[in-house]
């Protein structure tokens, strides 16, 4: 029925994942712009009461695929149900979280439906498109906007001909916003057997170890973040010292993570977490587009860098030109001195 669908992921604890709620919030805005309804697809076992969470985001229809074989997530049955439902419902737009699950599922589904898919979008908008070569014009397409080519360019991608238009978005990129507290839609149960067969259950999950998330970098008000310029795992201690004193968290760029200085959970940027703290202290970060995409909505940005021309300085509120080895201990010292 040409609506907007969000694949809603269910966490280990049986909740709807934050990224899915963020996408419902964005989906509702897109649906309102286009005059469409918002539908949620939830696949799992023992699904109950999730509608209480989902409806306030403006969900008009919830599709539950509820079967004990459907948790934990496994590619083939989830892909069969998702693609099967989409063939039946013909959505206009479908959004997935760019999580381990979403990035495994969405491409399989896109291939089944032979439609386009854009990964890790940092912005989604509605707009028109002129195809100059074929002299065709299109109204109200989904603009899927993402950095590309090492972040040196920002690409706007459209799918003029194929439906649904599919995109994945990282957690934290869209804002989670309740549409209406007492909003009510309808609940539909999917006949799982109609969409799956035995062949979808050939893979067996033998063992799982899932841990509670250790770092809550998304919720931090102050983030002290380090780039490749920090130089080593040992040097990151300077950042931890300041973060601990200020009650903040430590973040990092992909280069610092790839360099082995710090764990991946702390990566900020297009392929990491998106953050909006009130203060972002960037240490030795040159500032690639992908990194900026994950932090440029911070209320205040301080850039500490020996390179006075670091691209990040262009979006900073304060630029301290100097070595973080010198500056960070001084910040600790003066904060202690003045907070007494």
């Amino acid at each position: 029925m040409k609506n907007i669908f969000v694949y809603c992921e269910v966490t280990e604890e049986g909740h709807v994942a934050d990224v899915s709620l963020e996408l419902l919030s964005k989906g509702k805005k897109l649906a309102t712009t286009l005059g469409l309804q918002l539908e949620a697809l939830v696949i799992g076992s023992d699904l109950k009461d999730l509608e209480k969470t989902l409806y306030p985001y403006g969900v008009d229809v919830i599709h539950y695929a509820n079967d004990k074989s459907l948790f934990p997530y496994s590619t083939l049955p989830h892909a069969a149900i998702t693609a099967g439902l989409f063939k039946q419902e013909q959505p206009e737009i479908v959004l997935f979280g760019a999580t381990s699950v979403g990035r495994d599922l969405a491409p399989r589904v896109a291939s089944k439906l032979a439609v386009g898919l854009t990964a890790d979008c940092t912005s989604l908008e509605i707009g028109d498109h002129e195809d100059a070569k074929n002299k065709k014009s299109y109204k109200n397409l989904l603009y899927q906007i993402r950095p590309a080519f090492g972040g040196n360019i920002i690409a706007t991608i459209v799918n003029p001909e194929t439906r649904p238009q599919m995109a994945t978005v990282r957690e934290g990129v869209m804002k989670k916003e309740i549409f209406k507290d007492d909003y009510k839609g309808v609940l539909k149960n999917i006949d799982v057997k109609a969409f799956t067969s035995d062949i979808d259950f050939v893979c067996e999950i033998i063992d799982r170890h899932i841990e509670a998330p250790k770092v809550n970098i998304k919720g931090a008000q102050i983030i002290v973040s380090g780039g490749y310029g920090v130089g080593s795992r040992e040097n990151f201690k300077l950042l931890y010292d300041l973060a601990e004193l200020l009650g903040g968290e430590v973040g990092a760029t992909r280069a610092a993570v790839d360099g082995g200085f710090i764990e991946h959970e702390r990566q900020i940027g297009q392929t990491g977490v998106t953050v909006r703290p009130k203060l972002y202290i960037a240490c030795g970060i040159s500032g690639s587009v992908q990194h900026r995409a994950g932090m440029d909505q911070s209320s205040k940005i301080i850039s500490i860098n020996i390179d006075k021309d670091a691209p990040l300085n262009a979006i900073a509120d304060y630029v301290i030109t100097g070595s973080l080895h010198e500056v960070l201990p001084k910040m600790v010292k003066y904060y202690k001195q003045h907070s007494k």
């Binding site: 439609v115 195809d131 603009y143 920002i154 690409a155 706007t156 991608i157 459209v158 001909e161």
Partner: peptide
């Protein structure tokens, strides 16, 4: 199916 509309 995906087309690059614009590169900035």
């Amino acid at each position: 199916p995906t087309k690059v509309k614009k590169i900035d």
